[in-house]
């Protein structure tokens, strides 16, 4: 079968147009700010071939200058996460027939990461975030003697296999909406690994972890866009792990933060009136006396007014709000 692949090319050293496949001298150093170029290749592959098969075929028999990371070819090593038709996927897991749109498949380095060359992204931000959550067990004391394991139920281990299945490909971070606007957000992969240790019954520092993850850039900076759940090739569902961390953190008493206040304000408002009071949501989230942070939101507020998005100044309850209150009473817990 013939497939057409459009590959985003970038080489900080030179423009590929001026370069021959072989034998010609280096072009001079090239303007790094130039826009991404796409080069089109045609490959002949079996119908069940994946995007990576196409890239390897190009690299081996058409254009040796195409740079792409890959190793296992079977969705285990995590090397080949990249943008395929505008979303982060493993090239080795993306069937060409599925990803052919308007007669072609577009492949490029994710725009959310710095690019080293062609499809090779600089994954430094990803690895730094992974490191930042202290992804190692702080052994609970007393540690069993050297020839004895911790006694834990298998269910507690199975509970973590979803996070351990993470192959660190970075697809979740590449498409994370929060990371796109806030480079300091720890991101889905790191927070899923954070839960992997915070949720481990053998870990001694669960509380310290939950405190650290509750800070700026942590669990409350996720906006629930579900991109990470959709893009993860291994079913890790990072967002679900972030939600687990939030519950653990609130239960452990880490409530003095905008995230918890936001959740509380949200719940209170719905409990009392059956719907959201957007006017009080913001001050309650950042803190009523946090005048500085409230002032910072003024430009957005003015823009909303200008766009006719001002919430009603008088907040009314919905009819039958008592039934909502009954639900809260039934749920109990923090929002009783």
């Amino acid at each position: 079968m013939q497939f057409t692949i459009e590959v985003g090319r970038y080489n900080p050293e030179g423009n590929y147009d001026e370069r021959a496949v072989a034998g010609k001298p280096y072009p001079p150093p090239w303007d790094k700010a130039s826009p991404r170029r796409y080069q089109t290749y045609t490959v002949d592959l079996p119908a069940h071939a994946v995007v990576l098969d196409a890239l390897i075929a190009i690299r081996e028999y058409q254009d040796e200058s195409l740079a792409v990371r890959c190793a296992c070819r079977s969705a285990i090593c995590g090397s080949c996460a990249m943008w395929v038709n505008g979303h982060a996927h493993l090239a080795c897991k993306s069937k060409l027939t599925t990803f052919t749109k308007d007669g072609k498949t577009r492949v490029e380095a994710p725009p959310s990461m710095p690019v080293i060359r062609d499809l090779v992204a600089d994954m430094t931000p990803f690895w730094e975030k992974h490191h930042a959550v202290k992804p190692w067990l702080e052994a609970k004391q007393p540690e069993p003697p050297p020839m004895e394991e911790y006694r834990v139920p298998n269910a507690a281990m199975e509970e973590l296999i979803q996070e351990v299945s993470c192959i660190s490909c970075g697809a979740c971070l590449m498409d994370c909406e929060s990371f796109a606007v806030n480079p300091d957000f720890l991101g889905p992969q790191a927070l899923a690994q954070a839960y992997r240790y915070a949720g481990d019954p053998r870990d001694a520092e669960t509380k310290e972890r939950l405190g650290a993850y509750s800070g700026p850039g942590g669990i409350w900076d996720c906006t629930h866009c579900y991109e990470c759940v959709t893009q993860c090739p291994k079913g890790v569902a990072p967002l679900e792990q972030i939600l687990k961390l939030r519950r653990l953190a609130v239960d452990a008493g880490f409530t003095n933060n905008a995230g918890t206040r936001h959740a509380d304000a949200f719940a209170d408002s719905v409990k009392h009136s059956g719907r959201l009071n957007e006017l009080t949501l913001l001050p309650r989230s950042v803190g009523f006396f946090n005048i500085l942070d409230q002032l910072k939101t003024l430009p957005s507020a003015f823009n909303m007014i200008r766009a006719g998005k001002l919430p009603p100044l008088i907040h009314k309850s919905i009819p039958g709000v008592q039934r909502i209150k009954n639900i809260f009473a039934r749920v109990g817990g923090r929002f009783k």
Partner: peptide, 10 residues
């Protein structure tokens, strides 16, 4: 070698 670049010359 069909690529003459220095950076990431696979």
């Amino acid at each position: 070698v069909g690529d003459k670049s220095r950076i990431f010359n696979q």
